[in-house]
Amino acid sequence: MSDPYARAPTANPGRADLLDPGSLAKLGDMELIARRVVEGFLLGLHRSPHRGFSAEFAELHAYRPGDDLRYIDWRMFGRSNRYYVKRFQEETNLRAYLLLDLSGSMDWSSNPGELPTKSWYASHLAAALAHTLIRQGDQVGLVAFDEEIRHHVRPRGGPRQLRELLLTLTSAESGGRTAAEGALREAALRLRRRGLVILLSDLLLEAEPTRQALHFLRHRGHEVIVLHLLDPGERDLPSGGDVRFFDPETGDEMGVNVPDVRSEYRSAVNEAVAEWRGALRPHGIEYGVIGTEQPLASALRRYLQKRQRLG
């Protein structure tokens, strides 16, 4: 069984989406990183065996029974011997909200200097997603929250919106406790027609209210993606004997003998992940665990799969 957390190869310097986050952080500011990640990601799609996929992604979609034959793109048929149906801007325009967790727990890396914090990873992933969505013609908004909503950018499209989003993301600072349900309900209120909500969080919060809020969003007809960010140092306890662990978000402390509880801790993480998955997926909520050591491409691919289903 392959390790889903193994780092992606970094041999391709032209593919910023495949760079590990530590290397990616050295490329420049958020705008540059986001643009290069998205461009690299799209380049990868063009080179994939499924030719025309990027076209489908942007303007066309594969013919499905029931589609209006009047809109078949015969030029694409001539080129690819496949049927594609032209998409109209109005049909493909999507309102999306990026919900970014800015709580204190996000501002932590198990290997500072080598591995970015969850907060850095989340904001850059949000930037890349925003870049992708806007490039696709969708409208993107942002809600950055901790125990309160700290930043709110209304969904719009266009390059100006992207710049505003990047400015907001750049200026957002982590801190405070976490209460995602407020941000989720805010997004639900502002998305009047069906849209896409992407939650980027380490989910170190009160689970039940958050799940209820997510269920509510889904109930309102929105598509929901939950990207659960996990630092590799959270999946496994650090080495050592007797250690006193301190939670910067809550101020709680706990002393344990690491070897004594290592196995149980890992089980607890697995159980928590399983609980999230079990609580969300039956409701049609996309849930994925993203390790902060993984390239941003893996998170973008997850979005892409969801976006495809949205049509």
Binding site: S105, D202, L204, E249
Partner: peptide, 11 residues
Amino acid sequence: RRVVFPALRYL
């Protein structure tokens, strides 16, 4: 040894 560790709830 004191270690900052946000995932205390898992612990």
